[in-house]
Design a binder for these strands. Structure first.
Lengths: 233, 233
DNA sequence: CTCAGCCGTATTGTATACAATAAATAGCAT
DNA sequence: ATGCTATTTATTGTATACAATACGGCTGAG
């Protein structure tokens, strides 16, 4: 179970606000454009604005949240151009991950991956939100197993931003990653066939990319309070 | 003149603390391991701990500063293993940058690059600190000209972390990037020869990598106050 | 009806106060 | 001296207070 390092980030209260918001964004409970008012979040998580502010700044640095001076924070709305940049970077980095992984993958690694796929299969039919998150975590897991912490961090960041892109430009809940493809990638890795794995991944990501059909972003003022409650702690 | 986006990051006061610290780190005025006490920094920059704290958190997210809960912040000391990860990621990403750039580079882009090299040449003999920074900025400039903002951000982050690595593991001030190599890369790009550019860059980075000869980190308690004064606005 | 300007409200920016934790020091016993 | 515990000091964690700014609605003139 990813995700990333509990590294630093102040007392665990701040961490939980950060993690809660992040999960809400990735599972598309909070949608691009939603206003993130410091008071509201603080009230729901039971912390002061100080903490909330730190969490928002961190999410902003990761590109999940857009903070404008004196105007506050909203869930980021990546432009099509940004989306392109993100996918290009993703290909570049995930290829490297697969190359490394095909060289050094162990049986234990494969076990971990298979186990994760099992999770995905279990969650898939019913639980929409978790399904979105799990599909992304597969990629994060690959990056972590590659052993390069820097690449892993970037994949983590990029995958979560892809969540935003899909929320904006894809029709609702067309599951972004078909599990079959994940299985095929594992098979290629087991055979230590980096090229096949890369080809699969490329196809996999291109399939996602192509779903970029501008859908009008509904602009209604959403009240995020009840949503936050589900993600507080 | 890089560097990166003034994007977000609260009122410009916080930005200047962040930028000042960052520059001090990159120019190796602040060395890995140095303690960054919030009060001290705030006093020197004339802001409250609130601002300093935000800046430190951001630097921490970028891997330049190490923040440990209840213990405070220090300049990061990348391990050899981390150093390896960083260089691997750097190669992977800079290759992509060069590939893109070789396709779409314009005469104006080349002008900008040549201009920057002129700066490097001027600063090189005398001004040590600025020279270090400028050498890195060449790579950041390449990434920005490639037009992919995500890759640009990662290059920015990685190059600055390389500064730390060199400070830790290289003998003092062996200039990390010979300007000649930068010129050769431009030439390759002008000829739209991506492969040659990549080969040059690989060699260039490997040369840097090889200077990883563990030098004992002098552990004396340094007083960073006077250093900070030079970087406060 | 439209639009400009004004005022009240909501929200963010920053400093500060206080609590909690860790580091440093001193005192004591062995 | 050496090691252990108590006490003081330094530093960080968090909440809150207040100032600055942006937002929304209202009024009135055209």
């Amino acid at each position: 179970m990813p995700h990333r390092k509990p590294k630093s980030a102040a007392g665990s209260r701040g961490e939980s606000v950060y993690a809660g918001l992040r999960r809400a964004i990735i599972e598309q409970a909070l949608m691009p454009g939603d206003k993130l008012t410091e008071d509201v979040i603080g009230e729901r998580f039971g912390v002061s604005r100080t903490i909330v502010r730190a969490a928002l700044a961190r999410l902003n640095a990761e590109g999940l949240v857009d903070v404008q001076p004196n105007k506050g924070a909203t869930i980021a709305q990546p432009s099509l151009s940004e989306a392109h940049d993100i996918f290009e970077a993703r290909m570049c980095i995930e290829r490297q991950v697969l190359t490394r992984l095909a060289q050094k993958i162990t049986d234990k690694d494969i076990d971990i991956l298979e186990q994760h796929i099992a999770l995905e299969n279990k969650a898939n039919p019913s639980d929409g939100p978790a399904s979105i998150r799990l599909a992304g975590e597969f990629h994060i897991l690959l990056a972590e197993l590659s052993g390069n912490s820097v690449l892993a961090r970037y994949v983590d960041e990029i995958v979560s931003r892809c969540s935003l892109i899909l929320a904006l430009y894809s029709r609702p809940h067309s599951s972004d990653c078909s599990i079959n493809e994940h299985q095929l990638i594992i098979d290629a890795l087991r055979a230590r066939d980096a090229n096949r794995a890369i080809k699969l991944m490329d196809h996999h990501l291109e399939a996602v990319t192509e779903r970029a059909l501008l859908s009008s972003t509904s602009e209604k003022h959403r009240d995020i309070r009840s949503i936050l409650d589900r993600y507080a702690t």
